[in-house]
Simulated scan of single mutants.
Amino acid sequence: MSQIIFITQNQERYELSAESGSLMELAKANRISGIDGDCGGVCSCATCHIHIHPDHFEQLPAASEIELEMLELEDNVSDTSRLACQVKVQDAPEGLIVTVAN
């Protein structure tokens, strides 16, 4: 089981645990503000834009070409931007910290 820490734009901090699924699914199940996942997790809307903590970014699998293209359309993109629907819980390092972009 992985522990994931979400930080919202209002600086609310949520420490959650999960065994599988995506970060978007975990956030939606726990009503994390700013993670909408309008497309249901198929990488076509970018309403689950997050910033991965720099200490953890390189520990995750690289973003796909489609994910990078979706991020190009987003405001507030950083070098550590990802779409939560594309990051799997099982790939997350223990104590992963993500900040909700919206």
Rank of each mutant, 00 (worst) to 15 (best):
Q59S: 09
I32Y: 06
D36Q: 08
M70T: 09
G21L: 02
T8V: 09
Q11C: 06
A92I: 04
F57Y: 15
C48G: 01
E67I: 10
C48N: 02
N102E: 05
A84V: 07
D55S: 14
Q59H: 10
D75M: 15
A29Q: 10
V77Y: 13
Q3K: 14
S44C: 08
G34N: 05
K28C: 07
I5H: 10
P93Y: 13
N10T: 13
D75S: 15
G37T: 03
T47V: 06
Y14W: 11
L71P: 00
S22W: 03
E67N: 13
V100F: 11
V87F: 08
S33L: 05
Q59R: 12
D91S: 14
I97D: 00
V87G: 05
E15F: 06
G41S: 03
I35W: 06
M70R: 14
L16D: 03
Q86C: 10
R31E: 11
G95D: 05
I50H: 02
L68M: 14
Q59I: 01
A84G: 10
S17C: 11
E74C: 15
K88E: 11
S17F: 10
L83T: 05
D75H: 14
T47N: 04
Q9L: 15
G34A: 05
P54Y: 08
C45K: 07
S20F: 09
D79P: 12
Q3H: 11
N10A: 15
H53E: 09
V98N: 04
I32L: 05
I35C: 01
V100E: 02
F57T: 04
I32C: 02
G41A: 03
T99P: 00
P61F: 10
L73P: 02
G37Y: 07
G21D: 00
A29W: 01
A29N: 08
R82G: 01
D38G: 03
S81F: 09
S64T: 15
A84Y: 09
L68R: 15
E67R: 14
A29P: 01
T99H: 10
Q90F: 13
D79L: 14
L16E: 04
V77E: 12
L16R: 09
D38Y: 11
I35T: 03
V87I: 15
G95K: 10
F57G: 01
V42A: 03
E69C: 08
G37S: 04
T47I: 03
D91G: 04
S81R: 13
I4T: 09
A84K: 12
L83Y: 12
